[in-house]
Amino acid sequence: MNHDPFHWGRPSADTYGEYNYNIAHASNADRSTSTNSEFPRMHTQQPMITGTSVIAIKYNDGIVMAADHMGSFGSLMKLDDLQRIIPVGKSAAVGISGDISDFQYLERLLDDLEIEDSYDMESDNLKADYLSEYLTRVMYNRRSKMNPLWNAIIVAGFDGKGELVLKHVDLLGVSYSSPTLATGFGNHLAIPLLRKKVDSEEDVKKLSKEDAIQTVKDCMKVLFYRDARSWNKYSLCVIEKSTQSIEIEKDVAVEGMRWDFAQHITGYGIPQL
């Protein structure tokens, strides 16, 4: 290994030959160069270590949100104890999927925001609607610099009046809200199941907290069954409007799975979760 501070960690050229710039998808990859200064400034072209879906659903008195604990490096399970739902202030929780280094950058931005806010505010002023606007601006500005933060974010919590806020923001700075939200694979696998329970604000009134939690747990199971980049341990965030509380439970496990041969599972092929 090369121990030069500027080339630290790279295989030494004597043993392994010249460094292959193709590894970084650099646009001067064909140029035979080894000088560090000619290495171009790089923007994120693709995510490296990634977190998979975040899902969320509104119920009659709040929001339930979940995201698993895995960080994958391609098909490698790189991290297995990664919390991707983070509380911000007293009125919001943020679930982030996509690139983990960008997630950690956002985590730091939100931390700074919290600190800055606590300097001169008597009360907690980081409401969920302010936060989602801020994150939308951050994401949009970064995409406008052609250097996006490779994430999809779900913001859940309360606004200044204590009303529920549930918003989705993606790497292009597109934001939207809906009673059911999901990022990544969840958009394909979980959203149909979630919308079966809640498809409009009217349906929200009919869904209880227990049913909402059960629905989200079922979705996390389906995701673990079918999304190869998911994991059976996840964080479950329950937001309650009547008590204005936000609770994040870690290490919730996917329960009641059947991994038998298909022919031995009764009901295989007919609707089951």
Binding site: D120, M121, N125, K127, D129, Y130, L131, E133, Y134, R137
Partner: peptide, 15 residues
Amino acid sequence: KMVFNRPLSLSKAVH
């Protein structure tokens, strides 16, 4: 308003 969609608080403004 642009960044947070939040009216500037009076204490922040005067400071």
